[in-house]
Design a protein around this nucleic acid. Structure first.
Lengths: 204, 204, 204, 204
DNA sequence: CATGAATGAGTATTCATTCAT
DNA sequence: AATGAATGAATACTCATTCAT
């Protein structure tokens, strides 16, 4: 589609372009629809040239996974610098997820596809799993701190709750195109993790 | 792999066998690795025979989606008959998910793959989406009842919480092979939806 | 398309129905598009039943050729009984071709396809060639008689002229859907075979 | 069959070789027997390479039709430069047809097959029809000139007669391998279009 | 670095034909 | 006489990968 007349340029730059093109294509057509020729076309180079920079499709997918992880971790690092209270930091997580959903939806789509693939591709798993565990640990740490400083409920299981939060956000995006629903879900999470409403719950 | 000497049998039965074989293969190798020849081999029939019963790969995937939906809905109907209190019924949801995770893990794996595919395949979407919405609505109804009868916290947003619950369970299964972690997650969900622990949460 | 609920009936009748269905299908889709399943469907029977009556596709094509020849020869016999003068009998040939073109166009289309096939199929050739030669001889005989009785020009080469006439009629039907053009061609043939117009031809 | 060790060469040249190979194969086995693998083998390349140069069988047949038309039109242009009188030019037509029949018989065979196919293939029709009409018009123009300058009979219908001539020549080649018969037919045509022999025709 | 051409190993699908009932 | 189910052998077409320039 997007064919720009390409001049020669160094491998590092080309590999970045290739990873980006692959990501967009996966977002459009899924993993099974990913073709090296299409990637090359999108970058504006020949298939043979693509193979010069990335030797095989397997290597390409690894490259893609790494590029995804790099971006994901960079975002996480950025978040780490902000937020004072635990609740602030948790809300920052919600806000960042919301930002990606709005401005870079391909990121989540491709992450999901890669997560599926990780199940049967060790090389992908080696890149993706640590990233996912890192995310969970990051949120779990926030939750643990919040529990300990009393801003979150004391019966929190940080790992379990972090898993719940991540799953909830991802699932909220699955069908509803409407971003407002994601907001309802994160609001619900927040309420659920702080304290029960007035007269709520159980037999006294 | 598994070639059982097959005798003749009618189309309805063969289609069931084919759907089952396809499901197992997708669980093993994912959607992109699904080959009609492999399915036929697994059923113990010729590829041409497979095409006699299921005219195209597209139709095959639709059949697969339908078979999944049928099984899923049957399970849901079964659950509907049991449980007295809202909490009982919620716990039944957890238990059923747990049962599938233990005894029929392919079901969840394939459901996830189909959910991804639904994003770009209208026919699959037409089968899968209603099923997913049905699940969410089913749980949301339980939650709404629980909120209204006081067994669950009054600030519940049933749709948002149902989405959270489903996402949490699915995500709990994603990496951890350990079923115990799923139990921790559902326990956390339960605590989060009932009442805040003793001294927990908020500004005192 | 046309599926009539079929009862059992004898092979001779079934073979006639099959030949007719095959003829219509070839007229529609050409030889390369001829499928035994389509024929069976058109007759309203199962493919296996078709093979019961006509053992193979080769045999089917032979059957088709024979059915064509039978109809063609029957028409020729009918013409043979009419016409007094040579010119009358020639005009009867034109009229009969015209009649087929109007009322049974599939006949000519299929005959052309079979003629092509005869080039590389000895069995078809064995049926079709005698039919074509018979037609030519039939017309050549008319021409020879006309030449001898003075109603046609004396420098006629009957075989060559008969070949010309048949080719002219067939070619007249090839592109022009308009039957009027066939009439112009046969009129031209007639003029050409009788005598030169008034001041026509050559340097005096 | 004929595998020549092939070196690399550019697409234009390869497409020419492919068109030629396809023509020979159709002459041998007809349209229905045309297989991409056979064409590739004849050219001495891999099937995939064939598809690299000609993307589909449909495109291949269009290429074939164009190559045929190009050769046919080139011949017609060559004829146009020669011949003084109308009769000379008409005889040039006969001679050229005769030359093809002797030295390039595949040309006529394939043209016939393509003409049949044109009936149900619009793309082929778009290439073949103008070629056929061009041929007819070319001959009709010769005949009209001959009629007007008195070298041909005055009652000529140029279009009808041109159609007759073409059909006659084609039909003369259909069964008789003997080229002498074509000569008898063209001689008959010539006589028929000039003037009636001595005492010939009509009622005295 | 870059590319047009080439290729082997697949991949879904088709079709005439056969078999068991 | 009839049929639903089954099959082997093809067939066009695809795709990641390689090679020569």
């Amino acid at each position: 589609m997007v064919i720009k007349p390409q001049t020669r340029c160094d491998t590092a730059q080309r590999r970045r372009e290739i990873a980006l093109a692959a990501r967009q294509l996966i977002a459009d057509k899924g993993f099974e629809g990913l073709r090296t020729r299409d990637i090359a076309e999108r970058v504006g180079i020949n298939v043979a040239t693509l193979h010069y920079h990335v030797p095989s499709k397997e290597a390409l997918i690894e490259l893609l996974a790494q590029s995804l992880r790099d971006e994901f971790i960079a975002r996480q690092e950025r978040r780490r610098r902000d937020g004072v209270t635990s609740l602030d930091r948790l809300r920052l997580e919600f806000a960042d997820f919301r930002d990606i959903a709005l401005n870079n939806p391909a990121l989540h789509v491709v992450m999901t596809e890669l997560a599926d693939r990780a199940r049967r591709d060790e090389k992908v798993a080696a890149v993706i799993r640590p990233m996912q565990l890192g995310w969970r640990d990051h949120i779990a740490a926030i939750l643990a701190a919040g529990r300990d400083d009393g801003s979150l409920r004391p019966d929190l299981d940080p790992d379990a709750a972090a898993t719940m939060i991540i799953g909830a956000m991802i699932n909220a995006r699955r069908h509803d195109k409407d971003i407002a629903f994601l907001d309802r879900v994160t609001a619900q999470i927040e309420r659920a993790l702080t304290r029960a409403g007035g007269s709520g719950g159980g037999k006294p």
